[in-house]
Amino acid sequence: MKSIILQTATRYLLPMLLLFSFFLLFRGHNSPGGGFVGGLVASAAYALYSIAFGVEEAKKLLRIEPVYLIATGLMLALFSGMIAFFSFDTFMTAKWSDLNFPLFGKLGTPLLFDLGVYIVVIGITLKILFTISEEVKP
């Protein structure tokens, strides 16, 4: 099914949704939001794109195989916990930089962890989506 209305709308919605997902990710530390819901919104953007243009197009847009996203996300999350080892603290002890960035506020390992979650969620959701929308090959 190709709908010109959906396709046109999707071209505008995709960047909006992705931006919104980043917004959710960054405000997640102590307000509602976070990596998980942000990742869901981002993968919803790709899901919308795959409905409008087909799965093959969505795969092309993503460029990278979702499994690598899962691996990268897990690695980031694990690494964010291990940063504390460098200063001989327990696993997952939060480390904050002293710099205050505009828009983000202070950066620290919890954000890195959330970013990892964000990427894992995108990876898994899209892997599921791409797998079940593939046609069964006889």
Binding site: V67, I70, A71, L74, M75, L78, F88, F91
Partner: peptide, 26 residues
């Protein structure tokens, strides 16, 4: 203490690290 703490964590961290490595080479 740090070594022992690390040792207690390793049964959890090691399988995860190896799983990530395997996913990269899936």
């Amino acid at each position: 203490t740090f070594d022992i703490e690390l040792l207690v964590l390793l049964p959890i961290l090691l399988p995860l690290s190896f799983a990530i490595l395997m996913l990269f080479a899936w």
